[in-house]
């Protein structure tokens, strides 16, 4: 007798358990969809968790207006394929209304501005559980994140006052006006995600695979050439075979020299790489505790 499932099946089972628990414990959950592989994985797991019924909650995409065009196209196809509901929050609206101020200078990014639109959309939609694709292996502040992460009425995270999580027992009780962030794929590593996506043959945006693109180098990181990023006089644009390891805004997502054209190539690359995937994220490099500081304010 050998009853045994491999680590990917166990992670899948754990994530499906969390997704079903969310629907049972909350009135109005939503998936925070970024267009990256982690939120694609989470959406795919949600489809599995409720099969043959449809996913009983919508996707929320906070659109900074600085997305790669491929991200938007992929999002719309995914929504159509699984009959999902999509809510889009536009950062441009908040800027136009003067509610947030755009950063200035060559390194300007709308990454930080997303927080306002995100919290605003969560409030407007009366969403009480926002599902995120955050993983604990990504960044040191996320290593201590819970599956069910309580947020106060200002959407803030208090790392010192987190609810202990034991066994399979999750406590989603809250006061009116508070909400939860829930991270169903907390225990997956980057390699797990890729292995699973390969095994399941999940379609992904082309950005993840090696392609030719005009790029330039800044602070040791390659960035895609776009009119959204003003270049310094000494920054030269050149063509390179690259791919994205994470997908965020064009303004802050570093791209990598790579020849990985298939998921299998990517797995081989990830297994031997010596840099973390967020190593190319300018938004994390701002300070030693950049992620922790943003999380406390209500970032993803």
């Amino acid at each position: 007798m050998n009853y045994h499932i491999n680590h990917l099946r166990e992670l899948e089972s754990e994530s499906i358990f969390i997704l079903r628990e969310v629907v049972s414990q909350f009135e109005n959950p939503v998936i925070m969809f970024s267009g990256g592989k982690d939120s694609i994985l989470m959406t795919y797991l949600a489809v599995k968790a409720f099969y043959p019924a449809k996913v009983p909650f919508p996707l929320l995409h906070v659109d900074t207006g600085h997305n790669f065009p491929e991200t938007i196209e992929f999002r719309d196809n995914l929504v159509a394929k699984y009959g999902l509901r999509l809510v889009v929050g536009l950062v441009q609206d908040a800027i136009d209304k003067g509610l947030v101020t755009e950063e200035k200078g060559v390194n300007a990014s709308r990454n930080g501005l997303q927080i306002y639109t995100l919290l605003d959309e969560l409030e407007k939609g009366k969403f009480d559980a926002a599902l995120g694709g955050g993983r604990r292996d990504e960044e040191k502040a996320r290593a201590k994140e819970r599956f069910f992460s309580h947020r106060d009425e200002f959407g803030q995270w208090d790392p010192k006052n987190q609810r202990p999580e034991l066994w399979n027992l999750f406590n989603g009780r809250k006061q009116i006006g508070e909400h939860f962030r829930v991270f169903p794929i907390s225990n997956w590593t980057e390699l797990d995600v890729w292995q699973y996506l390969a095994e399941e043959k999940v379609p992904l945006p082309n950005l993840y695979f090696a392609h030719k693109r005009n790029v330039f180098e800044r602070d040791g990181v390659l960035l895609a050439d776009t009119e959204l990023i003003p270049k310094k006089p000494d920054e030269e644009v050149f063509e390179e075979m690259i791919r994205c390891r994470t997908i965020g805004d064009m303004t802050c997502t570093g791209v990598w020299r790579s020849k990985a054209e298939t998921v299998e190539d990517i797995i081989a690359e990830v297994a031997t790489t010596r840099l973390t995937e967020r190593g190319g994220r300018a938004d994390d490099k701002r300070s030693e505790t950049a992620m922790e500081d943003r999380k406390k304010q209500g970032y993803f």
């Binding site: 292996d137 290593a143 201590k144 790392p159 987190q162 202990p164 907390s186 225990n187 505790t289």
Partner: peptide
């Protein structure tokens, strides 16, 4: 991981690795 821990040189919570 957390700022408070780095400052005080202690671990105050469960961290997953």
């Amino acid at each position: 991981g957390l700022k408070a821990e780095r400052e005080q040189g202690i671990t105050i919570d469960v961290a997953y690795r």
